[in-house]
């Protein structure tokens, strides 16, 4: 690790100005990913601007009935918040499905979204990785591919995004609030992360110096009927092989509305728009759920070791939706 300067941010604007003005500066949140990357030699900032003291640590009700989650709200506080648990159980479940009790006490909302892939080749600086060093090549492509993407990958990168929180936020169509040197902008959660294309080094659409200040959850009555399911190689404390965030609104046996997003399958949380479209207005039946899952996964391109993810994703989608429709759904 190279020596670095450390400053505590006094206010949002000066923190953004400081990092924007120094290409070797980085924001420090809970540190659970960045500190590890500094140890591993993946990240080498010369200045850390600690934003955890900024007053962005509250969950507030919005006038429209939604919630605003400050970027410094710790993962554990987010999952424990009564309004989150009541109105958006998929979000509380997603957060609780990730990391460990100790890490959730440290990790922040913004930091969770900006965590980087756990692709072992990305984390091992002795192997080539386009995400670490653009143009270097991808060791994962012809390596052990069990954990890698089946949707939206490119010849440059097959890594998946590790966040559970981001999958739930994508399903809920949350809005990410971003401060930049010349003002504020908003980005839909589903558009925050990007597919790798020819620029695997860019995980998100954010530019250097832009700071996530909050995440807004829109009012969504049927989100009270929502669920997060996660399959992994051990019962707890592991990243997803496949995860599913779903919310379902059923009336008279028909799907009035539905939200669906997948984790563990792509370089970004995968908003399953094809499946949503296939289900809306149709019957809330297992056959319809299966057809919707098949529509979503039709374009998948599995790698030699991860073809199982397709069947797993299909089964988990159907299982999650059936649970939300009621176990007696036909």
């Amino acid at each position: 690790m190279i020596p670095f300067d450390y400053r505590r941010a006094d206010d949002v604007d000066s923190a953004v100005a400081t990092v924007t003005g120094n290409p070797r500066a980085a924001f420090l949140g809970g540190g659970t990913n960045l500190v590890d990357h500094m140890k591993l030699g993946i990240a080498e900032p010369e200045l850390l601007v600690d934003v955890t003291g900024l007053p962005l640590d509250r969950v507030e009700e919005l006038p429209d009935g939604g919630l605003r989650i400050g970027t410094n709200v710790r993962n554990s506080d987010l999952a424990a918040h009564p309004l989150v648990r009541e109105r958006y159980p998929v979000l509380a479940q997603a957060v609780l499905a990730g990391a460990s009790g100790q890490l959730r006490n440290l990790a922040t909302t913004g930091g969770n979204l900006l965590q980087r892939t756990r692709c072992v080749y990305f984390q091992d600086v002795t192997t080539p990785c386009n995400k670490r060093t653009p143009g270097e090549g991808c060791a994962a492509l012809h390596g052990y591919t069990r954990y890698h993407a089946v949707l939206g990958a490119s010849p440059h990168c097959v890594a998946v995004h590790p966040s559970d929180l981001a999958v739930a936020l994508t399903a809920l169509d949350a809005v990410v609030r971003v401060r930049r040197a010349d003002g504020e902008r908003t980005v839909r959660a589903s558009a925050l992360h990007r597919l790798p294309g020819a620029h695997a080094e860019r995980d998100t659409v954010l530019e250097h110096g832009e700071l996530i200040t909050a995440v807004d959850l829109p009012p969504l009555r049927f989100a009270a009927n929502s669920r997060y399911r996660k399959a992994r190689d051990r019962a707890s404390y592991a990243f997803a092989l496949v995860s599913v965030a779903a919310a379902l609104d059923v009336a008279d046996g028909r799907v009035r509305d539905v939200r669906l997003a997948l984790g563990g399958v792509a370089h970004k949380p995968w908003h399953a728009t094809l499946a949503e479209h296939a289900m809306r207005g149709g019957p809330a039946t297992v056959d319809a759920f299966q057809a919707a899952a098949d529509a979503e996964l039709a374009e998948a391109e599995p790698l030699p070791d991860n073809g199982f993810k397709l069947k797993l994703a299909r089964n988990m989608i159907v299982s999650a939706l059936r649970g939300l429709a009621g176990e007696d759904a036909p």
Binding site: Y6, L28, G31, T32, V35, D36, L48, D50, T52, S76, G101, Q102, L103, N105, L106
Partner: peptide, 16 residues
């Protein structure tokens, strides 16, 4: 326990 909450100390800089 850091300010009363359980945390891992290996992923936290002392200066913070």
């Amino acid at each position: 326990l850091l300010d009363g909450r359980r945390v891992t100390t290996c992923l936290t800089f002392a200066v913070a």
